[in-house]
Design a protein around this nucleic acid. Structure first.
Length: 201
DNA sequence: GGCCCGATACTCT
DNA sequence: GAGTATCGGGCCC
């Protein structure tokens, strides 16, 4: 199975976030594939970015952000939700892309079961993690290791005309300019239609 | 569709 | 002890 190589993630985080749109997130469970196309991704870049967890430096939680690109950073928030991020740039520099939206494709019945048969399967970061069965056990795994059961498969590129950039979501009181940086990338609603996808997004 | 709010436990101060 | 890169239910359009 083809998977995006480390060289894809070892680039500027904004580039990686933008280019992750339209790529396929795949998890193999007991030989069965769960997958979806990434529709929204958000960049967090370095200790200077005061919206980034690494603003507090290297701690037990943020340690993975300093590791090699292509590592998975999974963290827990609001007392109940897991979030998936992919580490970017060079080893030693803390940056990552948060996966915020996905168009479900393979294994939808499994995702629906995990999501309690709710309609909105993967239109939010915690929903993706729940539908894909990702929790702390997956923190630190390497998506570029040919043996890992989680990876990004190259798929259809999304043209710029179908992509929007916006401020990042849920940052609350983060100071400027970080609060307003347009570091959230998504396939627009019109773009989703053009893609022929019909989802709850 | 929208707004409001409570749940819930981990992380760092 | 405060804050949190969210979600879903209740309610009202």
């Amino acid at each position: 199975m083809p998977r995006l190589p480390r060289s894809f993630f070892a680039r500027p985080t904004l580039t990686v976030a933008r280019e992750l749109l339209g790529q396929r997130l795949v998890k193999v469970e007991r030989g069965k594939r769960l997958s979806g196309l990434i529709s929204e991704a958000e960049a967090y870049i370095g200790e200077e970015d005061l919206a980034c967890h690494a603003k507090a430096g290297r701690t037990p939680r943020t340690d993975v952000m300093y590791r090699k690109p292509g590592s998975l950073y999974v963290y827990f928030t609001y007392g109940m939700h897991w979030m998936m991020n992919i580490v970017t740039e060079r080893e030693g520099f803390p940056a990552a892309v948060l996966l915020r939206g996905m168009i479900p494709d393979e294994g939808i019945a499994t995702m629906r079961r995990r999501r309690g048969r709710r309609d909105h399967l993967t239109d939010g970061p915690a929903k993706i993690a729940e539908a894909m069965g990702i929790d702390k056990r997956w923190n630190g795994i390497d998506l570029c290791d040919p043996d890992s059961d989680l990876f990004i498969e190259p798929c259809r590129p999304v043209p710029d005309s179908l992509v929007g950039a916006a401020p990042r979501v849920g940052l609350g009181g983060a100071p400027e300019p970080w609060l307003s940086q347009p570091w959230n990338f998504s396939i627009t609603r019109a773009g989703l239609v053009k893609w022929g996808q019909h989802t709850s997004l």
